[in-house]
Every structure is written in C-alpha cells, then in structure tokens.
Design a protein around this nucleic acid. Structure first.
Lengths: 117, 117
DNA sequence: TGTATTAATCGTATATTTGCGATCAGCAAT
DNA sequence: ATTGCTGATCGCAAATATACGATTAATACA
C-alpha cells in the first residue's frame, strides 16, 4: 500500500481515473469490519480518542495499531502523538471526500429497465 | 469470500453487527479500481451489458470474469445467463442498500472540535 | 456431428492482508 | 539512570487477492 499508484503486477497496466483510485483506496480502508467499528467509535465520541480501543475491541494491541495505520494512510483519521499516548480522530477532509465520491456513486439515478435476473 | 460470516483466523473472534459486515462486504467489492470502472460502465449503459468489457478493459478475459464474480457475490450486480453470452446489470436492491449504509455512514454530522493534527 | 463463440473455471505464481507475540521508541516520574 | 506506560514496528505464519494462460461448458450454426 502507500498512496494510490501501486499495483502493476501485470504488463497490461489498465488506466484508472484519479477518482476511481481514490474511491478504491477509501473503500479498501473500510473493507474490514473492525475498521468500520473503529471509525464508528471515533465518530461517536464527539471526536478524539485513544487506544482505549484495545479495551473495547478484543484484539491484540499490535493488530489494532495496524488497523489504525491503515485508516491513517487512507487519510480517514488523523492522530495527535503525545507520548506515551496518541489521540485519533476522524479526518473531516477525507471524510467529506468519501461522502462525496461514494455518495455520488451510489446515488446515481439508475433507472434500470432490463430483464436481467 | 462468500457470505458475510467468515474470518476467524483468530480465537478472539470479535463481534460485528450485521451492518458492519454488510458494509465491509460492499466496500471490499469496490476496493479495486477495475471493479469501480466496471460498475460505472454498467451503470452508464442505461443497464444491461456484456463481456464487451473485455474489449474496453485491457485485462485477460479470465481476470475480468473473476472481478465480475466478486461483484456478483457481493450482490452489486446480477447476470442473465444466455449462452454463449451473459448480460450483467446493476442489482438495484443492493445498490440501494449500499447507498443507504455508506451514505448514512459518511453523512453523519461530525462536529469535530478537537485539536488533533 | 463438427465448429465457432462466449464466458466460467482450473491451476499456478506472486503479492497483499490479517493476526499474533515480541521488541523497540518516546516520554514521565521516580 | 531506572522504571513504567502507551503505542508503533518487526518478524512470522496463514489466508486472500490478483492476474494470467489453458481448459472446459453451453449453446448456435453449418
């Protein structure tokens, strides 16, 4: 991972639009239930939060840290390092981008009129 | 993949709500740019479509078929088998679910007021 | 019965994800 | 300096995902 321009295991590098890559990147970030749970927790606590996550979610501390890192790299959260503690909160900017891109995508008016089943 | 109730590589099976698992499953389906591109194509062509995808997207036919299968299993598309052709189109029901869940998730009113950076 | 067409599936190689324990890094207070 | 605390990172193992070519399945047509 790291940024949006990776993945070229093959020669036939397909071309993607910036939006497609950003959307995919955000989707990948929330493609694991525990990361959705984490985001929900962060969003509900008004804001900032810390590794009390470890107490709420029964997973190894290192595992949770990894998920936080994934969310951080996707830009969905931001953290304020303040050793020995770190506070995380939603990154409103990316949050808005996600809302716009994903919302716009799924809200598209699809008047499907085919006989597919 | 297959359904929403997999993943228990570990002993400390974390509990997830149905919504969390459905959201994660949908997000995973659109976590690859080529699948977003495919969905866009299907959505734009009014509706139904076929493996002309192979002509538009420079990827092996088997690879595209695999991505279609992923979208199918996530319920985002549906296909009408009509050998030797198959027509795919958006599955409006899941599409609406995705819109509701993801939209509701990201549209949550976050009045963050922390000093995190 | 062959032949052509389309698309799924199989088998394989490689890369990424996920999870864990163990260790390291940064700071505060002894 | 030593200790304690929180949290990131490392190293490993196992599971998934991704991409491909080759093969197979299903049907229409000659």
């Amino acid at each position: 991972m790291k940024g949006f321009a990776v993945m070229k295991r093959t020669l036939s590098s397909v071309e993607y639009s910036g939006e497609e890559e950003i959307m995919a990147s955000i989707a990948k970030a929330i493609s694991h239930p525990v990361r959705i749970k984490i985001l929900k927790l962060l969003a509900s606590r008004q804001c900032c939060f810390t590794g009390e996550l470890t107490e709420i979610i029964p997973m190894a501390q290192s595992t949770i840290s990894q998920h936080l890192k994934a969310l951080l790299e996707a830009g969905l959260i931001q953290g304020e390092i303040n050793p020995p503690k770190v506070r995380y909160c939603i990154n409103l900017e990316t949050w808005l981008t996600a809302s716009t891109l994903l919302g716009g995508f799924f809200n598209a008016d699809l008047t499907c009129r085919c006989e597919c089943r």
